[in-house]
């Protein structure tokens, strides 16, 4: 059609800048990936730059032989799954309870909860409390502090308040208690917001790093994020140990674990779960933060 305007100078600049920034965001992921599947010797010298060379997949098998790696993967997976379930359940239920005008001291308790978003005692007092509670070197330290999150509860409360109250009332007249109403009426209604919370919470748990740093010295409780951080600093010695314990190896130089192959491969393994769930949650999170934005 003639109405369609021609491509302007502005469009050219606009598309170019956006494309360049997109490339900047995408390239690191691509660069690490091609390095995990290329000749390890070339990769460690930085010669794999734009496309993979001599493709092999042995790095992915090898990193699971690093002592403690499999355990760390289990710990990360465990805290993500259990932590997310607990957070979603608690946020859903508590968010619903706070919509009940008749709750004893509702206004007070709601403020008691929400105000914790705005202060924080500081690192040392927090560390000392965690220690006094026996949460050093304890898997529960990954779960308990994350259960109640004011922001998620605000999201649920706002969402429940936007659903028609008549549904709840009719169920109550039929003799349903609060818990039944929550389970049978509210839960199906608030699934979209719970999905949003599940995504945020799962990503948060998977990415969490510094609780391990502060609270855990027991190697059996190390997470993937934590051992990745250690490998970034000590990969050379890990590679050395693997070359020795790998022993009688028939591996040639191109597949021999190097500091670079360990760093890149572990990084890819930590990134992949996020890449896998990312397309699913893209459609939820926009909705999620917009609800949050309305409430401020």
């Amino acid at each position: 059609m003639a109405i369609r305007s021609k491509i302007s100078f502005f469009d050219i600049i606009n598309y170019t800048v956006l494309a360049l920034f997109t490339l900047t965001c995408f390239f690191p992921f691509y660069y690490l990936f091609i390095n995990t599947i290329s000749n390890n010797d070339l990769s460690s010298r930085g010669l794999v730059m734009f496309y993979p060379i001599e493709i092999h997949l042995s790095n992915y098998a090898q990193v699971f032989q690093i002592p403690g790696f499999g355990q760390a993967a289990l710990v990360s997976l465990g805290r993500t799954v259990i932590g997310t379930l607990l957070t979603v359940a608690a946020s859903g239920f508590l968010g619903y309870l706070f919509t009940k005008q008749e709750m004893w001291g509702r206004r007070f308790w709601y403020r008691f909860l929400v105000i914790t978003m705005y202060f924080n005692a500081g690192l040392i007092p927090w560390y000392l409390i965690m220690r006094n509670l026996g949460l050093l070197n304890n898997f529960l330290a990954y779960l308990l502090p994350a259960i109640v999150s004011p922001f998620y509860i605000i999201l649920v409360k706002t969402y429940v308040e936007s659903t028609p109250i008549s549904l709840q009332e009719s169920a109550q007249i039929d003799g349903a208690g609060y818990f039944t109403v929550f389970w049978k009426i509210i839960m199906p209604l608030i699934t979209p917001i719970l999905a949003t919370i599940a995504i945020f919470s799962a990503v948060g748990q998977w990415n969490q790093f510094y609780d391990t740093l502060f609270l855990v010295t027991d190697q059996r409780l190390y997470t993937l994020q934590f051992i990745l951080w250690r490998y970034l600093n000590e990969a050379t010695s890990v590679a050395e140990i693997m070359r020795q314990t790998g022993g009688s190896t028939r591996l040639d130089l191109s597949m021999m674990p190097t500091a670079t192959s360990i760093r890149t491969t572990v990084t890819m393994i930590v990134v992949v779960p996020i890449l896998l769930v990312y397309p699913f949650f893209q459609r939820f999170f926009v909705k999620g933060i917009m609800i949050g934005a309305v409430k401020g």
């Binding site: 992921f29 690490l32 390095n35 994020q225 990084t267 930590v270 996020i274 890449l275 990312y278």
Partner: peptide, 21 residues
């Protein structure tokens, strides 16, 4: 899609990218 992705990776991973690049 690609510009939102970095928000969802941890700083440890960002550092790993920085290290490689």
């Amino acid at each position: 899609t690609f510009t939102t992705l970095p928000n969802f990776i941890s700083w440890v991973l960002v550092y790993s990218f920085a290290f490689m690049l």
